[in-house]
Amino acid sequence: MSQPSATEERLEHLKHYFIDSDQQFEASKMGMWVFLVTEILFFGGLFLAYIVYRAWYPELYLLASEELHTFWGAVNTVVLIGSSLTVAMAIRSAQLNQIKGLIINLWITIGLACVFMVIKYFEYAEKFGKGILPGGYYTYEGIEHEQANIFFSIYYMMTGLHGIHVLVGIGLMLWLVYKAKKKVFHSGYYTPVEITGLYWHLVDIIWIFLFPLLYLID
């Protein structure tokens, strides 16, 4: 075990193989950044598919994106940016030892994430109703283009995977609330809040690109 030099620091979070809290915090944060690299390249594959087919069928993208509602896309963008703000505020609260503020901000973030998912649900339901289903189940005849299904395959893959990431984020933040209520976090240790925040911002960034690429083509 390392010898804690500070006198009144809370150190129960410190693992024995780290020398001090700073080393542990920096290691966790770097680990999260490495993970975000993998996330960027994971979504990168879908962006590649999007770009390749957009270069092949530009007119398809123009026609198909009319089926998407710019208004709701924009609302969801604002909702996610708002949740990014509250997650940043949550980290700030933790840094300042304001556990109550941390919990409130986390709850607002969770709420906004749920709003996002509800809007997404109604968007999906509306398309399913029209027969705009993914892949081979596509039956809609309102778009006069042979490859209309391809656009919606990409749309469902991108927004679907993004939606799964939002759900995972909601789960992580519920867990953070639970931990915060058990008084685990304080200004000397808030690593899980920080790295969950990083993850959540990345989910926001991906949506920042999905919005203009899918909704704003016309």
Binding site: E26, M30, L36, I40, G44, G45, S84, L85, A88, D204
Partner: peptide
């Protein structure tokens, strides 16, 4: 400014740049 990369260590910045670079390479 939300992810604090502005104030973060250089290697984390490098990681981010690297992910973008390899994404552009793929495309």
């Amino acid at each position: 400014f939300f992810m604090n990369l502005w104030w973060d260590s250089k290697f984390n910045v490098l990681l981010f740049i690297m992910s973008i670079a390899f994404f552009l390479l793929l495309i």
